[in-house]
Every structure is written in structure tokens, then in C-alpha cells.
Nucleic acid binder design. Structure first.
Lengths: 253, 253
DNA sequence: GTTTACTTTCGATTTCTTTCATTGTAAAAC
DNA sequence: GTTTTACAATGAAAGAAATCGAAAGTAAAC
């Protein structure tokens, strides 16, 4: 039996039983456990199964996709620094837009002590965060609730937003690259962002180092649309230099 | 059973029951309580559950804790009965409006197991409550966040809502009386309700016994606009009789 | 005969889990 | 309101199993 046959057989077993153990596979295919481990590692790297201690399980039974609640808890110190830097760009009396990314939420969290601010957002989480802060006016566009981003999405929201003169818009992104510009994971989410990039006088991208060079499903802006990028000190310096050469201000915190 | 499988099973249990206990999990999976605690800690660090003394609860359940409205809600069996009766009036596939009252929230809570529903609401609390229920479409009008009612209010939201064909609207009220009809505490809140009473084919008022005979600052509908009132068995029978005589169906639960 | 891809052996390490003693906590009983 | 009381959490230590790294073995391919 060849390596590829064995690995295919392992995948079949997982498809049928949901789980396999290293010792069982070793006995079944009459190879050492080390070999089986190499198989499982290779298959796991291709995302075909999830490795566990002692075996492997089907990807469908593995831990759930990251929700906003979980994304919120990733890269916390970086996001907080980025959030503080973003909030520092906002003057009292301004109207700003914040999108439904977890980094934009970090910006919002640093606005809590501010007064006389109009905050436009389609993120329910940001709205919730601002509850009780009566000095801050929170405006939301209408739309349909998207469960994964906890935000309101829809064409009617855009018409609503056009009435506002929004000075600055803060946008998160799934990825930030020279060719694809700013990219996101879902198309409808992208659409509302695309319209808002047009609408905002100043476009500020808040993105931690992990976003650099990554490309998502849909683009919502090119780098030419962007005025400022706020990122952390782990951002790859070659990419930062290239983006700066493209005329974008890059703030590193 | 592998570690990942056990942890996934714990998450499933929490998703179904809302809560788990360390001792139950220890017995169920036949591992020590120390191991379960390590599992819960790991899952809590990833934001997949919220740790409590003796067990853990769902993250969405703990978000509810944030809302005073909801906490108040949980201790009032009358509102729950009214909510259940209201939910029973809603057929699958319908589009319904729920306002930002705590009684309308009780209706929403009884819709959680339903499928193929469109729920229009200006209440952030209701939207939050429906998070993760992907079978239910939640639509919100645009507007400005009102901190006291945790709802979106504004003239633009109305134009947005006119596009929807909403069969049934559920309205709470500060007061319900023969002369003043349905009254509320704040004028802008009233305005959006007034428009929606016009819009909805069927107007259903959900109001516990304390609301009868009370009059608030502004009226948003007369009894002639109302099709059904759902209330509890403490409602004053003389008023109930008069309202029935005015042609309104009164459901007592 | 050498190269290449795959596999094995064998310690050293790591991971997972348990036990036990100690400290901490919530809520009932006073 | 405080004191009990029963239960829960934590830290340290230890054992069993799984994993990893590196070197060595095997067999087909060039």
C-alpha cells in the first residue's frame, strides 16, 4: 500500500467514523505509529482533518468558527493600542463612522470619556458599548442583522447614511495588500463599506500586523482610497514601506 | 474520547442547555473535576463560554445579564405568559414588528425555536436576543440610539419600514385607557409607534395588568386602532369589559 | 552506485490526567 | 448581619501515554 492510498483510507475512516486513533491506524495499516503521525500531520496541514492528542477527528466536529466575541479577544494589546491611536485622531464635535470590525470596536472603547461626538456605526456591539453614554450620539443605518458580524447590512442603510457629513471613517479589514487593497470576508459587508469609503472625507484603516499581505474574498477599497493606516509594530516593514510609497500615511503603535 | 471532542461536547451542551456544572460534566465524561475545570478555563479563554462558580454558562446568556431590561424581565411570570400568548399568534413565514418594550421582548423570547420568520424591531435588546438564530431574519430601521429604551428612533427609519409588509405589530405601552388610548413616556418613541400602528395590518398590544387605566405623556394610538390586547388575569375586569365593548379583542392569560 | 522518498528505532520531551492538600467561595443557618 | 457548612478552585507532584527529533534503515528509481 502506497502512502497516498493509506492517507486516502485514513480520510475515509474519518468520514465514516468521525474519529481515528494513532494506535488503531498503526495496527490496521501495519506501519509504525510515527508514520501514522506523519500522515495525520500532513492531512491536518491541508485542513482535511483536525489533529488531536492520540488521534484525529473530522473537521466538522472540531471547535466552532471564531465569532466576533472570540475575535474580540485576539491580539488584545495590539488592538487596544491601535484603538487608542485611532481615537486620538478624532476631535470633539466630529461625526465619525466605525465599521463592525473588532478593531473599530477598540477605537470606540477609547471614545467613552469624550463629549459631543456623533458616532455612526452599523455594529450592534459598538452601539451596545456606548449605552448610557448620553454625551455621545450613536446613529445606526437600517438593515438586516448579520449574525456573524453582529451588524446591520442592507441597501437602505446607505441612502440613510448619505444625509450625514461624516468626516472620518474607521475601517477594519480581513486583509490589506498592495494589489487587492482592502479585502473582507463577506460580500454584503463589503458593499456597505465600499459606499462608506466613498462617503467619508478621510478613510482610516485600523488593522493589526496579521492583516498585512492577506487577501480576502472581496475588495472594498484600493489603497488609493485610503488616507491613513494604523497598525502595530509587528507589521512587515517591507510591505509598510511599499504602502507608504503608494502615498498612504502609516502609523505604527 | 479525545480532549477536543470532550470540549466540543461541552460547548454543545451549553448551546442546548445554556449552562453546565463541573460535577455533571465530570460524571458524564468520566474524568476528574480538575480536568473539567481545565477544559472550562481553556474554553473561557477563547471566549466560547463564560466561567461561573461550579460550572459555566453560554456567552449569549451572559450578554443578557448586561441588560437591566432583561433581568427585570426574567422575574415577572406575567410578562412571560403574555409573551408566550403573543408568540402563539405568529405563524411561520410571517413578518412581524416588535417595539422596544420589555413585554415585546418577552414575545421575542418565545420565538426562539421558530423558523422562517422576519422580525422587524427598533429594539437593540431584541436584536441581541435573536443573535445566533440564523433561521430568523431580524430587520432594524435606521435611527439614533436612545439610551433609556435601548432602541433606534428617527424619521428616516420610518421610510425604511414602509417597504415592508408587516402583518402583525406587537406594541407595549406605558398606559392603556379608554380616553387616551395607548400612551407612552417619550414623544419621539411615540412617533415611530404611531407610524407603525398605521403600517401594520394587525395591531396587538401586550400590556400587563399594571398598565390598565394609566395615562402617559403622549398618545400613539386610540383603541379603535387596536385589534387585540393581551394581558394577565389581574387586569381590572370593569376596564376590560369596557375595552371589549369598544370592539377590541382582549386575551387574558 | 547514488539518489530520493518513505519508514523505523530510540531516547528525550511534552501533554494530559489524576491525587491530595490547601485555600477560596456561596449561600444556608443562626 | 455573622457565622457556619458544604462545595469549588487551585497548586504541586507524579504517572501514563503520546509526541518529537535525529539518526539510521529500507527499497524503489535514476
Amino acid at each position: 500500500m502506497y502512502l497516498e492510498e493509506r492517507r486516502q483510507a485514513i480520510l475515509n475512516l474519518i468520514a465514516n467514523h468521525g474519529r481515528v486513533s494513532v494506535s488503531d491506524l498503526s495496527a490496521r495499516f501495519d506501519v509504525s505509529e510515527v508514520t501514522i503521525r506523519a500522515d495525520l500531520q500532513a492531512l491536518a496541514e491541508r485542513g482535511l482533518l483536525v489533529r488531536t492528542y492520540g488521534g484525529a477527528i473530522s473537521t466538522t466536529y472540531s471547535l466552532q468558527e471564531l465569532s466576533l466575541l472570540q475575535r474580540r479577544q485576539q491580539h488584545i494589546p495590539e488592538k487596544q493600542r491601535i484603538g487608542a491611536a485611532g481615537a486620538a485622531l478624532i476631535a470633539d464635535g466630529e461625526a465619525v463612522f466605525l465599521d463592525s470590525s473588532s478593531t473599530a470596536l477598540a477605537v470606540a472603547q477609547h471614545l467613552k470619556s469624550r463629549r459631543d461626538l456623533t458616532l455612526v456605526t452599523n455594529s450592534l456591539v459598538i452601539a451596545q458599548e456606548m449605552l448610557g453614554l448620553t454625551e455621545i450620539t450613536v446613529v445606526m443605518p437600517g438593515g438586516t442583522l448579520h449574525h456573524d458580524t453582529v451588524s446591520l447590512i442592507g441597501p437602505d442603510g446607505l441612502a440613510f447614511l448619505e444625509k450625514y457629513h461624516i468626516r472620518k471613517g474607521f475601517f477594519g479589514a480581513y486583509g490589506l495588500s498592495l494589489d487587492a487593497g482592502l479585502t473582507d470576508g463577506s460580500a454584503p459587508e463589503s458593499e456597505i463599506k465600499r459606499a462608506l469609503v466613498e462617503l467619508c472625507h478621510t478613510v482610516i484603516v485600523v488593522a493589526d500586523a496579521t492583516k498585512w499581505g492577506r487577501v480576502g474574498v472581496t475588495s472594498y477599497a484600493s489603497l488609493a482610497d485610503v488616507d491613513t493606516v494604523i497598525t502595530d509594530d509587528q507589521a512587515p516593514s517591507d510591505l509598510v514601506a511599499q504602502v507608504r510609497a503608494a502615498g498612504v500615511e502609516v502609523v505604527i503603535v
